[in-house]
Design a protein around this nucleic acid. Structure first.
Ligand SMILES: [Mn+2]
Ligand SMILES: [Mn+2]
Ligand SMILES: [Zn+2]
Ligand SMILES: [Zn+2]
Lengths: 150, 150
DNA sequence: CGATTAATTGCAATTGTGTTGCATTGCTTT
DNA sequence: AAAGCAATGCAACACAATTGCAATTAATCG
């Protein structure tokens, strides 16, 4: 088998994985969505709409906006309010239902402005006054990330 | 002493309290600032710039904006990122230096959109990966507040 | 297959919040 | 009173988020 073929097969396989991810969440796998999902999979930190806009300069931002909304609604990704003006998005873990027990802490670097999922750090249950009925919780640390430490 | 006079004295006394609050934080007590501070003191939940704008229709929003900035900088109030688009502000507790140990949890009601300071609920210290250097942390619950519970 | 319908994408425009620059006002100090 | 400085007002801008509708593409049906 030629090298080119091997690469093609591998690429096809990778694409199939992405397609599967979308199918599993009942999202029709259009080329646009595969493109965005690929970017999200490869990204090491959470991405904002404007970052996506810069990555795919030819694609309209509204399309990207709606793609993210669809992904979020179908629980493929979760949104992160890191205190910067722009909302960021990151892939959910396997079997995530975006319930409080699935949520984790995030870290926003004040230097590089990147936001990371601390997927291993769950959010501890807290005793808040019983008159408040909590449905979700957002916990974000700010400081200097591993890459920016001197 | 006439009733009117009594009221006047009480009002003057109240104003003096507000003035003192500003003086203590090294903020020159202009009439504008006294007005905004009064609103903040009387408010049971955190307020946004646009809410202030509606309360004081004659006042320019930039003035209110800068008033809030000054108050925040002088640690008279703290800002809250509750996940809604608009930043909210609330009075600091006595002797607050806005250090991590002074910070508390907030609650944002998804129904009435109001945001409350849970001043008695501190933010617990968490073990995050040591490569991240945290300087501050934000923790916001979302759900239904006491007033909106059926 | 072609025709019809539904879903997706693109383009233009608008909203809402936050922000800056500069002119004007008002207080303070000499 | 004049000068200097801080506070306020007005206009304009930056930018993320969002909506409406037209154009395109994909799915469905005869
Ligand atoms: Mn995350
Ligand atoms: Mn608070
Ligand atoms: Zn960093
Ligand atoms: Zn409420």
């Amino acid at each position: 088998m030629e090298i080119v073929e091997v690469v093609a097969v591998k690429l096809a396989f990778k694409m199939n994985q992405l397609e599967n991810k979308l199918n599993t969440k009942n999202i029709k796998p259009t080329s646009m969505r595969l493109l965005v999902l690929k970017q999200l999979v490869e990204s090491k930190s959470a991405v904002s709409l404007s970052e996506l806009e810069n990555t795919f300069e030819k694609v309209d931002k509204v399309t990207l906006y709606r793609t993210l909304k669809t992904f979020e609604q179908k629980k493929l990704i979760h949104s992160i309010d890191d205190g910067s003006r722009a909302v960021k998005y990151a892939l959910c873990e396997e079997n995530c239902e975006c319930e409080p027990e699935d949520q984790h802490v995030h870290f926003h670097c004040e230097n590089c402005e990147e936001t990371f999922c601390l997927t291993n750090t769950g959010i501890p249950a807290l005793n808040i006054p019983s008159s408040f009925k909590a449905k979700s919780v957002n916990m974000v640390y700010k400081g200097i990330c591993a890459n920016c430490a001197d």
